[in-house]
Simulated scan of single mutants.
Amino acid sequence: DNVKKLRTFASRADHGESLDTEDLIAFPADELGEIAERIIKIYKRLQSTRREQDMLKRQLTQNIAHELKTPVASIQGYLETILENPNINDQMREQFLGRCYAQSQRLTSLLHDISTLNRMDDAPEMTSTENVNISQMVQNIQKETALQLQQKGMTFVNRLPDNIVVRGNQSLLYSVFRNLTDNAIAYAGEGTTITLTAQRPDAYIVESDMSDEDGSAKWAFTFADNGVGVSAEHLPRLFERFYRVDKGRSRKMGGTGLGLAIVKNAVLLHGGTIRVSQNEGGGLKFEFSLKI
């Protein structure tokens, strides 16, 4: 009887038919019956996981389409105005072309970030690794963002020790520190301070979360700002793709909504963990680790 039920199950599973009918729910209580029930439970769990993944993919595709639609519509609108008004003055034409270019840069950023996330999702083992000097990398990011920081009256306090070296992918590690910096510049507020610190792996006892089950040591980083922060209910969702605390404001700032998702994925790929909390005295505090 159990063999017959298993044969029915296999046939229905193969043809994508329902498996919730009475004749498949209960098996006689013998060894084969127990194995059969486990097989069906595993199969149903896999089906459920697959449905959830399909739903997430659909949501992500819809989000991507929505994000791409805005800059494309803007570019079309400005170009149509220029084409339909041949007598438009040079100053106005220049202004519209400048806005087109800004929107095309936003499109480029979106496509780059989507490509980065896809690369991490599809083939994390394909990313090339090398010894990366984090201390030097952060100094370069400070130089690259100096003008933006100055325009907002912000200060970047870099307290990293010299010569922090991590084995990993150069571009993904750069994305971690650059996206956190860009996020703070965009949302912390004028006149605020960013503070980056790190603790050496040997400063931690073995049972701390800075050493793995396999005993591998990690650098522990804290990236904090004393800005406006976000309310507690938003914290668990900050690393979600396209999640925005303030949708309108975020888009005006030019953010892709993918920066913190890239940060989290890149940290996980480098054997670390990351969490975000409200900073004492205001702002956000990101605490993350990277394997040496």
Results as ranks from 00 to 15, higher is better:
Val3Asn: 14
Val3Phe: 02
Lys5Trp: 00
Phe9Lys: 00
Asp14Gln: 10
His15Asn: 14
Thr21Lys: 02
Glu22His: 05
Pro28Gln: 09
Glu31Thr: 13
Ser48Arg: 14
Arg51Tyr: 04
Asp54Gly: 10
Lys57His: 15
Lys57Ile: 14
Ile64Trp: 00
Leu68Phe: 06
Ala73Cys: 07
Ser74Glu: 15
Ser74Pro: 02
Ile82Cys: 03
Pro86Glu: 12
Asn89Lys: 09
Asn89Tyr: 09
Glu94Trp: 02
Gln95Trp: 06
Arg99Ile: 07
Tyr101Gln: 14
Gln103Cys: 06
Gln103Glu: 15
Ser104Cys: 04
Gln105Pro: 01
Gln105Ala: 08
Leu110Glu: 12
His112Arg: 13
Ile114Gly: 06
Ser115Phe: 04
Thr116Arg: 11
Arg119Ile: 00
Asp121Phe: 08
Asp122Ala: 01
Asp122Trp: 06
Pro124Tyr: 03
Met126Ile: 04
Glu130Asp: 08
Gln136Cys: 05
Met137Asn: 09
Ile141Gly: 06
Ile141Leu: 14
Gln142Thr: 13
Glu144Ser: 09
Lys152Gly: 10
Gly153Asp: 13
Phe156Met: 01
Arg159Thr: 10
Ile164Asp: 08
Val166Arg: 05
Val166Ile: 06
Asn169Val: 00
Gln170Thr: 08
Ser171Phe: 09
Leu172Tyr: 06
Phe177Ala: 00
Asn179Gln: 13
Thr181Arg: 05
Asn183Phe: 03
Ile185Asp: 04
Ala186Tyr: 04
Gly191Phe: 01
Gly191Lys: 01
Thr195Asn: 05
Arg200Ile: 01
Pro201Glu: 13
Tyr204Leu: 02
Met210Ile: 07
Ser211His: 14
Ser211Ile: 15
Asp212Tyr: 00
Glu213Phe: 05
Asp214Leu: 09
Ser216Arg: 08
Ala220Lys: 07
Phe223Leu: 02
Val230Ile: 14
Ser231Ala: 13
Leu235Glu: 14
Arg237Gln: 15
Phe239Trp: 07
Phe242Ala: 11
Ser250Leu: 01
Ser250Asp: 15
Ser250Glu: 02
Arg251Asn: 15
Arg251Gln: 15
Gly255Gln: 12
Gly257Ala: 05
Leu258Phe: 02
Ile262Val: 13
Asn265Gly: 03
Arg275Met: 05
Arg275Tyr: 01
Val276Arg: 02
Ser277Arg: 13
Glu280Gln: 08
Gly282Tyr: 07
